[in-house]
Nucleic acid binder design. Structure first.
Lengths: 117, 117
DNA sequence: ACCTTATATCGCGATATAGTAATATGCAAG
DNA sequence: CTTGCATATTACTATATCGCGATATAAGGT
C-alpha cells in the first residue's frame, strides 16, 4: 500500500462522506433512476443532484445512460453495497451499546444515589 | 435506514476521507503504538497527530491507554480492516482496468494511424 | 426553426476542516 | 516541588466544497 494509494482511498471515502451523495445512492439501491426521479425522491434541487451524480460518475461509483430525453443513472460498483452495509452495522451496534451504556448508568445511579431524578 | 442514520454514515465515512487519518490507521494496522512513534512513522507534526487521533478516538475507531508517560493507541474497530480492504481492492482493480484501457488505446492507435508515437 | 422539458454547468457566499506554531496539561524522576 | 519529556489543546490562516440561483446545453415534438 503506497502513500499514493492511501490518498486515493481517502478520495474514494470522501465520495461517501457526503449525506447528499449517500441519499442519492440510497435512492439508487432499488434500481436505476433518472435525474428527475432522484430529485423527487431526495427532495434535493436539480442542480445539486446533477452535480453530485457527476461526482459519483467521475469515480465510477455510478454509471449513466441516455434514454431519450432522460438520463438514467445506476449503481456501478457492487462494493458500495458492502461498504454501506459495514457502516450500517457499525451504526446499529453503536446504537445498541449506547443504549446498554445508558441502562448501566441508570442502574449505577440508582444504586449510588438512590434514584433521585 | 433513516435519514439520520444516513447522515451518521456520512460522518463515519468522513473519518476515513482524510489521508492523514488513513496514514495513522495504516501505521496502527501492525499493532499499538504511542504518539511519538506515530509521529516518526508518518512524518506528521505532533500536534496534528494528536488532533487526528483525537478525532478517531471520538468515533471509537481507535482506543487509547496510558503507559507511564506515553499514550498508546490501537485500532478498536475491526470493521476498519474490512473497509480498507474493500477500498484497496477497488483501487487495485481500477488500476488494472486502467492499464488494460491504455493497452487497448495503443492497439487502436497502432491500427488506425500507424503508430506515430 | 422554435419551444418545452430534462439535464448539466457556472459563479457565488457561506461553512468546515486541515496544518502550523505556540502554549497548556499530565506524569515521572530527582 | 520543580524539571523535563510526552501528549493535548488553542488560535489562526488557507483551502476545499456545499447549496443555491441563474444560465447553458441536449433532445423531441409541433
Amino acid at each position: 500500500m503506497t502513500d499514493a494509494q492511501v490518498e486515493e482511498a481517502a478520495r474514494l471515502f470522501s465520495m461517501l462522506a457526503e449525506p447528499a451523495r449517500l441519499f442519492l445512492l440510497r435512492a439508487l439501491m432499488t434500481g436505476p433512476a433518472n435525474v428527475g426521479q432522484l430529485v423527487e425522491r431526495t427532495g434535493m434541487k436539480q442542480g445539486n443532484v446533477s452535480k453530485h451524480l457527476g461526482i459519483l460518475l467521475g469515480r465510477r461509483f455510478v454509471a449513466r445512460r441516455r434514454q431519450g430525453t432522460f438520463v438514467v443513472y445506476e449503481i456501478a460498483d457492487p462494493a458500495l453495497f458492502q461498504l454501506c452495509e459495514l457502516m450500517c452495522n457499525r451504526i446499529q451496534s453503536d446504537a445498541l451499546s449506547q443504549a446498554g451504556r445508558l441502562v448501566v448508568r441508570r442502574k449505577n445511579q440508582a444504586q449510588v444515589s438512590g434514584n433521585k431524578t
